[in-house]
Design a binder for these strands. Structure first.
Lengths: 200, 200
DNA sequence: TCTCATACTGTGTATTTATACAGTATAAAT
DNA sequence: ATTTATACTGTATAAATACACAGTATGAGA
């Protein structure tokens, strides 16, 4: 997908915001006003560029006829994570779900599909989607997504200091994971905000 | 809140649908076309009635300037259910969450807040919100919301025939619930589509 | 009986809106 | 050196749109 200029990106963000706050896309004039353009045609041209690049669809002859391309909407679902690859790498994103609203306490960066039963006792089971926020300021007791030597795992953060981290599975069949941070690479990838499960 | 006529309700539903599928509210003409009105003014009048009754807000002089009142948007969360009252009775709705999208396999009529630990072993724990669809065509193995003599409960549907129903808690500390439908009142209130959990 | 709300058709128009065309200017690509 | 993309202003206009006013018809309530 072709990259956007700074201005185009600003415009796309504005359109997206107007849709979610006003319930309808902006007109050319409204876009021009927002950015201080003296001619609505500036907006028109940016819209055409966004359309050409595939980020939006313009519905000719229709007032407020702007729709944002669905593949940019929605939150990615990260399935199997290839060892060593960034979580949000294209090859790890199995699909996206449309999802807007204030369901979770913070903004959701992505959903991670849960594998295994190591968190069974807190109601997180195989196949569940857990909502993740990428910020790093997690605290003890939080359920976190962590990366230990290229492996991604979901556990409760039980202990954390300069030398040692302890991750706790919530299943009595599993033992705590102790990481010696001086010899193993360790990273917090995000905090678990909640759980989404869909029965078929 | 004043009640809507059948027509007004149809129009409100249509507007809501257009917003979610097209990404923008319809024009008067589009409403008229949908319902076969020969004059766009019919749509205009229905919109005025909906505005007057508080269901929508009309933004004067703005194309597609229709917004649906937020208190009618979102899906109700049903908390404690007063014995004998309908699940969706006002007094049982603790709040609503904005929620649009195709997260669950079917349309969600409401969310029910889970009490107790009787479904722990399938990952449904106290405080979870379970997404419910009101239709009655459930099958064995489905997790259902059932009403037994004025009490509402969430269990797996294990057996169902003309005389007897068995509901199974998913926790070995609980026993199956057998209902003799000839002497006890029994109703399926809905099918559980999924689970939503939000950590704070 | 009269009024009022609902549910339409039909006409008209001011305003909003999309969108084309003609320019100016700059930076990157060929 | 010339094209091409970006980023604007300014003008113009056809089409889309909101919305008022004038009717017709029906059923409910006062």
């Amino acid at each position: 997908m072709r990259t956007l200029t700074t201005r185009q990106s600003e415009i796309l963000t504005f359109i997206s915001k107007v849709i979610s706050t006003e319930g309808m896309p902006p007109t050319r004039k409204e876009i021009a006003q927002k950015f201080g353009f003296k001619s609505a045609n500036s907006a028109e041209e940016h819209l055409k560029a966004l359309d050409k690049k595939g980020y939006i669809d313009l519905h000719g002859g229709t007032s407020r006829g702007i729709s944002i391309n669905r593949s940019f909407l929605g939150i990615p679902i990260v399935g199997s994570v290839a060892a060593g690859s960034p979580l949000l790498a294209v090859e790890n994103v199995e699909e996206r779900i449309e999802f807007n609203g204030n369901i979770f306490s913070d903004s959701v960066d992505y959903f991670l599909r849960v594998k295994g039963d190591s968190m069974n006792e807190v109601g997180i089971i195989e196949g569940d989607l857990i909502a993740i926020n990428k910020r790093k300021d997690v605290k003890l007791g939080d359920i976190v997504v962590a990366r230990i030597n290229d492996d991604v795992t979901v556990k409760t953060l039980f202990h954390f200091d300069k030398k040692k981290v302890i991750l706790r599975p919530e299943n009595k069949n599993y033992k705590d994971i102790e990481i010696n941070t001086s010899i193993e690479s360790f990273d917090i990838e995000g905090k678990c905000l909640g759980v989404l499960r869909n029965y078929n």
